[in-house]
Design a protein around this nucleic acid. Structure first.
Lengths: 239, 239
DNA sequence: GCATGCGATTAACCTCGATCATGACGATTC
DNA sequence: GAATCGTCATGATCGAGGTTAATCGCATGC
């Protein structure tokens, strides 16, 4: 089913058969989208949301003139812009990173679900709040880690998420992202991402080639974000 | 009423009298909390949420040993940890920045609301997603602005939010934050925040003393975040 | 065959902001 | 009144990472 991967045991929350069937029935259409296509734009009014079935999508904030910060990447099973259902207006763009298969859920269907199935409604709400929790992890990454820590943190996080989705064996996975994409995720320049990638490779921690990450030393890679970071306050300021 | 400021015309969404009364009735207790107290800790299981009536609160991620990144600040009228209702487990700490008055809403009351009042449920959901939208603005700030841009961006954003809450006249407002707090919001050190504040003062843009922000040149201050930022890609990379 | 373009790579240079250190000032507490 | 603490302030130093620019490999199209 198209919704198979949605909320597949996220922190103990998952859909029962009836809920999954109801959600499946809410899908109006499915389609394939090529890579690097914009699905929805900032400010746009939406009356439908997108469930990602296959491929990688992202959400990003653009300043004028190409200054971009990615705020989320989405994997198969993610209800990419479900938050547009309560919000109606997006504050960012939504697009594909790789070729993707998407399922469309009209908001009128979600209206019906929220009227009839409060438990499923809470689970949908939950799913949008998981995204917010990931936003917070990203805030920590940008605010408190240095370049190497940020990239390592991102690779580790994504590895874990892909494992939950059954798309990584924990050793390697394909993201379809370029170094420039990683730069826009980690708040760095492409040039410096390249330096970081080289460093990680030379240290034998992981490689990143053709959008494919290979984890060579998972344990050590995971410690990097804890080692490389800034001090906000003076060293004496213990709390 | 305690809920008076909650969702007061946020992007066109607000509560009608019946909804507001229902929410008001959901409050079990109110209390005052002194400044710098922790209300909830990361990992904790919660069966109630906190509506902020007076004062400033924050949410933050702590690494061990005092490395802290604020991920949100909350103003009167904010339903601070409503996201704990669907999530149940917090991924961060919640605390007061100033002395505060809070109202407690047990999750069993929210269960009842989600069963009986789908429209109010959607509005509560909406409120949690507004917080996520602010997370995204913060991600842009950390990922793409330099130190002066970040502080200017934060002051402007907070000014707007306080105006919505009726707590700023647009010219000055009291936050009760220290320079160290701003550092933990903007991903900087206290030392550098101090220099940025001095710069903003010397440029005649705004002042920040004793937790009080005075905007001297709102228009120019608002342009700062657009001027001071990084280039991710090469200059030729137009999109 | 050549042109075009994207992505990765590397070098040279220099700035922003972290780090370290020190001190002033006011509000406490004893 | 002295000691302590929190906050603000400022100088000196230096390194991480931005900026600019050039090159290379590889794919695609004509």
């Amino acid at each position: 089913m198209l919704t198979d991967r949605f909320l597949r045991d996220r922190r103990g929350v998952s859909l029962d058969a009836g809920e999954r069937a109801r959600l499946e029935a809410a899908i109006s259409t499915t389609s394939t989208v090529e890579a690097r296509k914009i699905i929805a734009r900032a400010g746009q009014w939406l009356d439908q949301s997108t469930l990602l079935v296959e491929g990688i999508m992202s959400r990003y904030l653009d300043d004028r003139d190409g200054l971009r910060q990615l705020v989320a990447i989405h994997l198969p099973g993610d209800f990419v812009d479900l938050h547009a259902y309560p919000l109606k207006h997006l504050d960012h763009d939504v697009g594909t990173m790789t070729p993707a298969t998407i399922a469309i859920v009209p908001h009128v269907e979600l209206d019906a679900i929220t009227e009839e199935m409060p438990e499923l409604t809470r689970k949908l709400w939950f799913a949008t709040l998981l995204d917010a929790a990931i936003h917070r992890a990203w805030l920590f990454r940008l605010g408190r880690l240095d370049a190497i820590g940020r990239v390592a943190h991102f690779f580790c996080e994504t590895n874990v998420r892909l494992q939950s989705a059954g798309l990584s064996d924990g050793r390697q996975f394909t993201l379809g992202l370029t170094q420039a994409d990683v730069a826009e995720i980690c708040g760095l320049t492409t040039v410096h991402v390249n330096r970081v990638v080289r460093h990680l490779r030379e240290e034998g921690l992981c490689t990143f080639r053709n959008g494919k990450v290979e984890i060579l030393d998972a344990a050590k890679l995971a410690t990097i974000p804890h080692l490389r970071r800034f001090q906000t306050r003076g060293p004496a300021d213990d709390r």
